[in-house]
């Protein structure tokens, strides 16, 4: 839930999603769901000369399970807030 919330705060920001098939796609984050499926707009594929497969694709839906990394805009991530929220969530889990 925590990570889902983080992604929600990053909607309309530019991110780079790296997939487990080594494709790397940069675009504007339009939405995310609880599976961390991602909708990207205005996409660019890294090294398009080698990966022309998505030349005519301008926006896409990426399945959360195939994501390896997402590069985030550091200036839009409040690390102190993240750490506090992570500690709170860990404490809440411990009580169950």
């Amino acid at each position: 839930m925590l990570i889902f919330s983080v992604f929600k705060t990053l909607t309309d920001q530019k991110v780079t999603v790296e997939l487990k098939n080594d494709l790397s796609i940069t675009g504007v984050l339009k939405s995310v769901d609880q599976f961390l499926n991602i909708r990207l707009d205005k996409i660019e594929v890294f090294d398009e000369a080698r990966h022309p497969h998505m030349m005519a694709v301008k926006n896409c839906f990426i399945r959360g399970s195939v994501v390896r990394y997402v590069q985030l805009p550091a200036e839009h991530v409040d690390t102190q807030l993240l750490e506090d929220a992570t500690r709170r969530e860990a404490a809440a889990q411990g009580k169950r």
Partner: peptide, 11 residues
């Protein structure tokens, strides 16, 4: 190097 990175847990 990457400034800020989300890493999916299954990896």
């Amino acid at each position: 190097k990457v400034d800020m990175l989300f890493v999916r847990g299954d990896g």
